[in-house]
């Protein structure tokens, strides 16, 4: 039985906290003028969205996917190719990519819903690798390892901006979309079904939960949102190739971000991105790529062995302690 999530019902204070966080995030480009940090911030937003998307199928439904880079890649390539070949704006391309990835996710869901534990993991891994091999070798379509360069054409109506703050708001919009859908799922009937299936499939079925339908819908939504992140990533970086979109390492990192933050919770993956991405970036700059990944590997091991509920569990614990401290302080005043 995986991850504990204490309650799906959320306290009303959460709404206020969300509003405050959103306002703060909206103000970021006004405060942070440094290009390096804003660039890093946008990367965090995209990774937070991607990890949130992964969490819908892995955290809620318990299917640990190691193939999500495939959906990210489908999103990135679909919107970029539609733009390059047919001149269709990425604002539309992002949804086409999401639809395509959603269909692919549903297909994968249909063929893997019965598989458990390592078998599911290996099936998604193989799926991801198949997509990567196709991506590298279908040169007529994807240009293979040469990659695709998005020419700076047309500006905002093509999701291509001359300044970083516009990308920040695009990234923020993406995050609000994915987190919003994640919260909606968590509170909906589907959310309860997924968690029930994750905790005990036989019991869930005997209570009337339909396995295939629930898992396939979750897989499709998760894939579609990962594709949205891919499309935004493509317009942000303006260059995509198989290594930066469909590689196995990317699938691992998506999982890593969500796990470090805390699987099965809405905010865990976001927190994970806020920790892992800057940490990796700073380490890469200071000590190089190898040591940065050593730290990633170490972090992943320590988290799953010692704190499988992720950083969010620690944050919650501190929050509870603080509240108790404040409560007792108030009592002392009175």
């Amino acid at each position: 039985m995986p991850i504990k999530s204490a309650s799906l019902t959320s306290p009303s204070g959460q709404r206020i906290a969300f509003a405050v966080a959103l306002v703060l995030l909206l103000c970021v480009p006004l405060v942070i003028r440094d290009i390096y940090w804003l660039d890093l911030g946008i990367t965090v937003l995209i990774w937070a969205s991607l990890a949130t998307a992964w969490n819908i199928s892995a955290g809620f439904a318990g299917g640990l996917s190691l193939g999500h880079a495939a959906f990210f890649g489908v999103g990135a390539y679909t919107s970029s190719l539609l733009f390059l070949r047919l001149g269709i704006t990425p604002w539309i391309g992002v949804f086409v990519g999401a639809l395509l990835a959603g269909a692919l996710g549903a297909l994968l869901g249909v063929i893997t819903f019965r598989l458990k534990g390592p078998f599911f993991v290996l099936a998604t891994l193989a799926f991801g690798i198949v997509v990567h091999i196709v991506n590298v070798n279908w040169r007529d379509l994807t240009r293979g390892a040469a990659g695709l360069l998005l020419p700076f054409r047309g500006g905002p109506q093509n999701m291509l901006f001359p300044n970083l703050w516009a990308y920040w708001y695009t990234g923020l919009g993406l995050l609000v979309l994915t987190v919003g859908i994640s919260i909606a799922i968590e509170r909906s009937r589907l959310g309860y079904y997924l968690v029930a299936l994750r905790e005990d499939e036989d019991a869930a079925r005997s209570l009337g939960v339909r396995v295939v339908r629930s898992k396939v819908v979750a897989a499709a939504l998760s894939a579609a949102l990962a594709a949205c992140a891919g499309a935004v990533y493509a317009t942000f970086i303006q260059y995509i190739d198989p290594d930066s979109t469909t590689q196995f390492e990317l699938s691992v990192q998506i999982a890593l971000v969500a796990i470090v933050g805390g699987m099965g919770t809405t905010l865990g993956p976001v927190l994970g991105a806020a920790i892992v991405i800057p940490l990796g970036e700073i380490l890469r700059a200071r000590v190089g790529g190898g040591p940065a990944l050593v730290v990633y590997g170490f972090l992943l091991m320590v988290i799953v062995l010692a704190a499988p509920n992720g950083a969010i569990a620690g944050v919650r614990l501190i929050g509870r302690r603080l509240r108790r401290l404040m409560d007792s302080g108030r009592k002392a005043d009175a």
């Binding site: 995986p2 640990l64 390592p118 993991v121 890593l256 796990i259 050593v294 799953v304 499988p308």
Partner: peptide
């Protein structure tokens, strides 16, 4: 005997660590 996420990702973490070490 731990949840799947631990069983799968502990050795994956080790793999990343050893490769990059």
């Amino acid at each position: 005997g731990k949840p799947d996420v631990t069983v799968v990702f502990a050795t994956l973490g080790l793999s990343i660590l050893l490769q990059n070490a």
